[in-house]
Design a protein around this nucleic acid. Structure first.
Lengths: 235, 235
DNA sequence: ACCTGAACACCGTTCAAGT
DNA sequence: ACCTGAACACCGTTCAAGT
């Protein structure tokens, strides 16, 4: 896109610097737009992941999108894995931290928003197997555990509730993000129907072709929350 | 490992074929061991994944382990993704399908074995985001749903129970496989303690440094099963 | 039918060099 | 301080060719 890059290496005569448009028209290479920052890299990574999926995120393609040479990224970021970790944490900034209020409502709001964010970025659930220690994730996990502690949970009950809610939510998002692609879902359903002799129950209930994933998740969440107020928990 | 491969390309004289050890000592190239099969490829892939993790599974390294040239794999298998899908299904053959009996016991046995298998192969949980349609996975999912249906669950209750159990189990395995590496866990804990002002609850409860992941999972599972016999479910 | 060498179009990352 | 070209050591996969 730089039409005559050699121009830059010539001695700076008045001709080259002052006339025919001058500095303003000559493409400044490097900092074309804003200067490159970690935030811009992460933003471009999230956009690339949203548009094309995890398999297409490449340091080279990311650099191209930022109009920068690939090695440039490594001045701002240590490895590609760093970019992925930052991208995961970045999307959780979209999850609103609820106001204090009835504990069960606050927990429900947080979990539902958490799930919605993962489903909006379906490349994210498979990445949650890496240590999530970014500020956005930790702040929301802190809120979850604090709210449950405020409801009276202690010790093992508290740990089981916090991890249980997170794990159920993550697992649900992982499953749903797999089957929400209608081509994949239809092929899966056809496969199960074709082997209805081996999988009669799955075939009869269209196990992988749920009409309402939201209702499924909500029922699980309701039961989980009801269980927290149950025999062992004490709120 | 072939000391003099050129020997093979010479005209077959008596000298080359019959003497000095002859066929038996001359390395037969290609089918050195058993002939290559999809099963042997998948077995080698699982071994490689167990020993070195997902990041080190490469078609080239897999071929090397099987003493075969890399393109050879592509006669038996279509893509690397196929190998991954087959590897995931292969490990679930380790999960025993319980005998019929008390439905809650059967479900518990299946889920606990499922979880144990994933934790024995910690590379597997992050791969569960791909369509799992292998016979081992489907047979066990069929058993789970059939057992829950036998307990009287129907419609949304049945779907929510089947997916809920699977999702909770998958999510738990994903989380635990991340934090069971003690180096990662210690670093995470140090990080949270260092920011105890921002994450007071997490820091106070050592959120990521659970002494007993099994107890955590068991409590969640117990509550889930209890909920199935509760207000909405009818068994 | 089954296997291979050579090659293609990529990767992530390093490093000396530019400005 | 920030960016680049060239290069290294890899990838997954294809294909014509061997046996």
């Amino acid at each position: 896109m730089v039409e005559n890059p050699d121009q830059r290496t010539r001695l700076p005569t008045v001709e080259a610097t002052g006339h025919q448009g001058g500095v303003w028209l000559r493409p400044a290479r490097g900092r074309r737009d804003a200067p490159l920052t970690v935030d811009r890299i992460v933003g471009a990574a999230v956009a690339l992941l949203d548009e094309e999926g995890a398999g297409r995120l490449t340091m080279r393609r990311l650099a191209e999108r930022l109009e920068v040479a690939p090695p440039t990224l490594y001045w701002h970021v240590k490895t590609k894995d760093d970019v992925l970790d930052l991208a995961v944490d970045a999307i959780f900034a979209e999850v609103p931290v609820p106001d204090a209020g009835e504990w069960a409502d606050a927990v429900r709001d947080l979990v539902l928003a958490w799930r919605a964010t993962m489903l909006r970025h379906p490349w994210s659930p498979p990445l949650l197997g890496r240590p999530m220690l970014g500020p956005n994730v930790l702040r929301r996990t802190e809120f979850l555990q604090k709210t449950l502690a405020g409801a009276g949970l202690r010790g093992l009950d508290l740990a089981a509730a916090t991890h249980g809610l997170a794990n159920f939510t993550i697992g649900s998002a992982l499953t749903q993000s797999t089957w929400q692609n209608s081509d994949v879902r239809d092929a899966a359903n056809a496969h199960i129907r074709a082997h209805a002799d081996a999988y009669p129950t799955l075939a009869a209930h269209d196990h992988l072709d749920q009409p309402d994933w939201d209702a499924l998740f909500n029922q699980g969440l309701d039961r989980f929350l009801a269980g927290l107020a149950g025999p062992t928990g004490s709120p």
